[in-house]
Write a protein that binds this DNA or RNA. Sequence first.
RNA 1: GCCCCCGUAGCCCAAUGGCAGAGGCAAACCCCUUAAAAGGGUUGUAGUGCGGGUUCGAAUCCCGCCGGGGGCACCA
Length: 827
Amino acid sequence: MGSESNQKDTAVSEYDPQALQAKWQQRWEEQDPFRASEDAADPRERRYMLDMFPYPSGDLHMGHGEVFAIGDVVARYWFQQGYNVLHPIGWDSFGLPAENAAIKRNAHPAEWTYANIDVQANSFKRYAISFDWSRRLHTSDPEYYRWNQWLFNRFFERGLAYRKGGLVNWCPNDQTVLANEQVVAGKCERCGAEVVRRELTQWYFKITDYAQRLLDDMSQLEGGWPERVLTMQRNWIGRSEGADVVFEIEGREEPVHVFTTRPDTLFGATFFVVAVDAALADEIVTDEHRAEFEAYRAEVAKLSDIERLSTDKDKSGVFLGRYAINPVNGERIPVWAADYVLADYGHGAIMAVPAHDQRDLDFALKFGLPVQVVVHTGLADPGETGEATPGEGTLVNSGPLDGLTKAEAIATIIRSLETDGRGKGAINFRLRDWLLSRQRFWGTPIPIIHCPDCGEVPVPDDQLPVTLPDLRGEALAPKGISPLAGATEWVNVACPKCGGAAKRDTDTMDTFVDSAWYFLRYTDPNYTDGPFDVEKIREWGPIDMYVGGVEHAVLHLLYSRFFVKVLHDMGMVGFTEPFMRQLGQGQVINGGKAMSKSLGNGVDLGKQIDDFGVDAVRLTMLFASPPEDDIDWADVSPQASQKYLARAFRVMDEVASAPGGDFAQGDLALRKVTHKTIDEVTKLIESYRFNVAIARLMELTSAARKAIDSGPGAGDPAVREAAESLAVMLSLVAPYTSEEGWERLGRTGSVALAGWPVADPALLVEDSVTAVVQVAGKVRDRLEVAPDISEDDLRALALASDKVRAHLSGEPRKVIVRAPKLVNIVP
RNA sequence: GCCCCCGUAGCCCAAUGGCAGAGGCAAACCCCUUAAAAGGGUUGUAGUGCGGGUUCGAAUCCCGCCGGGGGCACCA
């Protein structure tokens, strides 16, 4: 090939992203290059890369664009490294939006759902994500949700699924109950409506049985999960250590337990508080006080959660006319009902120690209850100041505890309580059981039949799945009870046990049940003998990398961890944690704000792709910032990304040597750049620092550009080496550009499976390095030295420098040498 | 109120105890062009939010503030 520019101009092709997409998407469709192998004889090590599966709310949006780009880099890197990679995709396709759409269009939720899934699947294919499409699943398929029901039955058998009545969170907008985790600051996590409390009988999973293990097993995740997510889970589980103390209530046979983290302050308990909505309050209130109590209870019930839980709200409560007996000193203390004590934490009742607890003090001062100091902290009397003293100190007014420190007193009193049978050391969790019933249609029917004679009877496994009846349009409108209740024919069945007339449970499961185990089914989504093939999970699990949004830090991730522990106890999986590593990506925002319809600042992923091409959009997402940071689309330039890709493409396209040449004959300077880049990019990808990795690829591209234009020229083997390495490394980010470049380089087969380049250590060694010589921290000279120079030699060289000596008068006090890069002389 | 993370150039971000700048955007200038676009190239600007401290040496470690973000929040 000649070097005349006119000849070059005709040879160089235009970089046309849309044309490349059409060409290569079709080839990949034919070649199916990312299929995971189940062949037991396949010697490749297995890796499981999982993206949080999408909800089919419409087409893919910018957030999907980011999260799947990140996951795809990891998966494609592993493919290049020669692993047998499982990188599946499916849809979390049960849920409310489908139902709302169906009501509006007088249609079935499935129509909207599966139409959206098709749209998203096509977008994923265009977006060039390296999925194994053969493992696709949808949670709304009866063949999927049948296994939700099967698992429910197993949980039920083990006492881990149970029904109980109680106050629950109710979303008046969605007309359904919510789990604790789905209530954020008193509002519905999904729609933002203010949540109210309702008395309902509902199904729960007993996640609290696993609270301690959920906490303990986090040690397996340290270093693999973002610290932030682990902290959030710890907060959510909320373990506290203390004691259970038994109080007699005058006139009640059964004593009452309270949980306290401060048993040392037991002598300072001057009153007793029961949660106003606890059954105990209703039971023990005297006739004399009942009217007042009921009025108060009604008033509290009217408050929204937000008002009720607001910290700066005035304390309120009523005296119940009863007295409790302090077990350590026999004192009679009045029993009050108040809303600052929660019915569903601890035992729904507390001993109040106003001197050392601010909440109790506020209450005591408001109602004129006594304040008794039992820990001398050196601070002023809380009864005078209104400031409780919860800190360390010496016990006083506490009989046998006097003179002890807080820690000593806690240990002593617990021992003493245990001896007397009046209490014991105890641990309490903030975590509540997982409420899983939902009064909505588009979900998994709870496989229980209510029989007047046999009670709650699970639908036998061989009769699963309990499929949804065919309801559509108006029949799905929220009425406060499940739409399934209206399907009379469906509801009325024979009891599986006695054959008598019975009714199906009409609630459906929280969709978080669907997502709590879907990753296990990817190993064989068509498996018919169980939710997943135990043998295949042994091969693939646990998941090596899980990529998704931090918004699921407690919900989905906690539930999945719980499920896997139960499955472990059932002997179905060999591990106790599902996700060994987790990468939580930030959000894509625009102009400093979350994208929203009301703000009118939405950016459409499809439009971005139309304008700049898939590769440029992916590159922009990954180059903008570290994965976990938010990306402000107003700060980035997909246009610039496209320009870079065109530049990279031209380098590959202009290589003038034939494939298979001897790189060793190539220009040494460029070869060193190439190998240094390979080395650094490898480390950067492995530490998920994709933005920096891309910067290195840009440098390599510039170096190759220079070599072509003003160096050894396009025919030099080093230029080919640089371009081929670039094509492979860039393929993680920009698969279309790389495929085309690879083909232009005369290479055959998909670049995606070409194999990751390996840096030659011999080419990573520098001939010389610049050593900086500082005097009192200021740079005074630079020396070119051998990289393996000894400390002594470098010290001698530095001290011999004229520029250095000019700043020295006499002998230096100290010389610090860090060969080969730095000498600091302290005069 | 408590806990965590983050403040580096006009902007997005590198540098994890050793020369503050790798990369990009924007800006300015040059080459190419009849011209423009495209393309190629060159260049600056910050002393790291503020104040202390540790150290031969601090963006980096420690303490206290300021600003931004997040989590928990009447959990006994």
